[in-house]
Every structure is written in C-alpha cells, then in structure tokens.
C-alpha cells in the first residue's frame, strides 16, 4: 500500500480546473544556470493521470514545426508556475490517445457549448 494520502499536496492556485481536450498554456519554470525563467508550452491536454496522488500529472500535445511534441507535467510540482486555459474542448474520452493519429483538419476539437453558446474561459489579467 502506498502512503499517498499522508502527503498534503500543495494545490497551485494558478492552476484552474481543466481536462482532456482543453487547449492550455503551461508556464513552466526552467532553471538555466543561475537564473530561472518561465517557459510556456501551449497545446491540447491529452489526459490527466494520477488522481489525487502527489505524482499526479497531465500530458499536453502540440505540433511544433510539423512534429508532434508531447510533454508531461507534474500537477503538484512547484515548477509549474501557472496554467492558462485558452479554450474548452468537447471530447467523449478521458484519454485522447486517438488524437496522435490525427493531423490537419481531422485534428480539431469542437468547442464546448453551454446553452448554445461557447464556453469561454475567464482570462485573468496577470
């Protein structure tokens, strides 16, 4: 048995609720020698895994110069400075593995609608 429930995860206030299919921008702290800077990574969330354990993570996929890049971020890492949700997507799977085989026009995700109007994220001014 693991002891995950004994560790208090520090929930990051700058990470809003998001899920698979959403387009997000992850601001990740990168250490370069002495100084640290924030490196953004923007793409579609493929999955969230790990539940409530401290090792919980999420995977973001983006197409960079025609090549698919996937990055996995630890949800409770202090190096994840913030996550901005840019667009809510409507998907019917929890894990969008099928998305890897899609490209071009097939690699689109419908926007999530509420009462016939698209659900738009509240963009905080930071």
């Amino acid at each position: 048995m693991d002891a995950h429930h004994l560790v208090q995860n520090q929930p990051n206030e700058n990470i809003p609720d998001f899920g698979p299919g959403d387009t997000v921008k992850v601001n990740y702290r990168v250490k370069e020698g002495e100084r640290t800077r924030v490196q953004p990574f923007q793409g579609i969330v493929l999955l969230k895994s790990g539940g409530k354990s401290p090792s919980a993570s999420f995977t973001v996929r983006r197409i960079a110069q025609g090549i698919g890049i996937e990055r996995k971020f630890p949800l409770y890492s202090p190096n994840v400075e913030s996550v901005d949700v840019l667009r809510y997507g409507k998907v019917r799977r929890a894990r969008l593995y099928y998305f890897r085989e899609r490209s071009g026009r097939a690699a689109r995700i419908k926007e999530r609608m509420v009462n016939g109007r698209p659900l738009r994220p509240q963009v905080k001014n930071r």
């Binding site: 002891a3 560790v7 630890p74 202090p78």
Partner: peptide, 19 residues
Amino acid sequence: KIGMTQIFLDDGKVVPVTA
C-alpha cells in the same frame, strides 16, 4: 512502516520517501 510516496521540495525536486 506505512508505505511509500513522494514529496516535492521547494526547488521542484521530487524525493521518494517511506512514511
């Protein structure tokens, strides 16, 4: 012994620990 988990340090490093 309770079991293993992990802890994040302030600098973002993950330490495997036994509770």
